[in-house]
Simulated scan of single mutants.
Amino acid sequence: MDDAEVLALFDRRVRREARPDGPGCRIERVGGVVRQTGPAEAWNGVLWSGLTASSADRAIEEQVRHFTSLGREFEWKLYEHDEPGDLGDRLRAAGFAPGQREALMVAETARIAAVPAALPAGVDLVPVTDATGVDLLVDVHDRAFGTDGTRLRRRLLGQLAEQAGTVVAVVAVADGRPVSSARMETAPGTGFAGLWGGGTVPEWRGRGLYRALVAHRARIAADRGHPWLQVDASDDSRPVLARLGFTVLSTTTPYDYRPDATTG
């Protein structure tokens, strides 16, 4: 694949032409940015920006004003190829806190779907279709990442209730206990399927579960006609994904704005 062409396609279809990714969410194109605004449990933030050195600070101020007027924390999802080159510095100066930088990795779906990736003996994959399944997934998420999955639970329940055709979630179960989980989100017409939340509890790591869940979701994406897979990869998952055939196209860093943190 031509990396530059695929990155341009990703920027246009996934970011500039973004669709709402949850119930009650709306996409707005204002002031040189594309943003999503939704309920508190949804992802709120800036997906894309086309800014210059002369327009960036005003756009940042406008987004802060918009989201804080609604009482929302929000994220500015910054990619390393976004302009202007000092946008990250400008966001920090405006009170945003940068999170962990991740690699934007993309692969051809058919290639990953063909990867042999058997589950360990005694492990079954259970599709998440209801509240019981969501609870299993969130349990894995909390144990794997050490975070509170309350907002994830609310968001996923809403997606399954109102947008079931665009979200896939699965839990790997061993001896009746959830040990790994993952999600995939798709937007018709983009060509990209986003892989999210692949996590395994500590005692089950190193047994091929992450690889198996990537291949499982790739097969579903292939069946649904999505030619590309996209992952925001941590330093831990990046080597595994590279061995599977994913390519780094850019990096992305979440810049979070929390009104209480900036006002004291």
Rank of each mutant, 00 (worst) to 15 (best):
E185D: 14
N44L: 03
V140F: 01
R155V: 10
G50A: 12
P227N: 08
G133Q: 01
R177C: 04
R13L: 12
F67D: 02
D82C: 06
L9R: 08
E80H: 13
G146D: 07
A93H: 11
R217G: 03
L156E: 00
T190K: 02
Q159Y: 00
R72P: 00
R92H: 05
P239W: 01
A53T: 13
A93M: 13
A215P: 08
S181F: 06
P254Q: 07
F67L: 12
S234F: 00
S180W: 07
I60V: 04
V138H: 11
Q230P: 05
D3I: 09
L213E: 03
D3N: 12
F145S: 12
V14D: 06
V138M: 05
A172D: 01
D260H: 13
D124V: 12
L70N: 11
V214Q: 03
G22H: 02
A215V: 06
Q63D: 14
V170S: 03
A174V: 02
M1S: 15
V34F: 09
E185V: 12
Q163T: 10
S54A: 15
W196G: 14
L160Y: 01
D236P: 05
D236K: 12
T200F: 00
T129I: 10
R238G: 05
W48M: 07
F10N: 01
A59W: 04
T68H: 04
G191T: 08
V6K: 10
A113Q: 09
A103S: 15
V171W: 02
A221P: 03
G45S: 04
P259E: 15
R58K: 15
L157S: 02
A117Q: 02
R35Q: 09
S54G: 12
A121D: 15
D86V: 08
A118E: 15
W228H: 10
A114P: 02
D86C: 11
V33F: 01
A53N: 12
T147K: 14
E162F: 04
A97R: 12
V168I: 10
L87G: 04
G189F: 02
G95T: 09
V6M: 11
L156I: 03
V240R: 10
G146Q: 09
V123L: 05
Q63T: 11
A164V: 07
Q163A: 15
V115K: 09
D260A: 15
L119S: 04
R12W: 04
G225K: 09
E41H: 13
L156G: 00
A94M: 08
T129P: 00
L119R: 01
L195Q: 07
A212I: 07
W204Q: 10
V64K: 11
R13E: 07
R15G: 11
E17T: 12
F74M: 05
R26F: 05
R111S: 14
R155N: 15
D148Y: 04
D57G: 11
T37D: 14
T52Q: 11
R219H: 09
S250P: 01
V173G: 07
H141Q: 14
E75W: 07
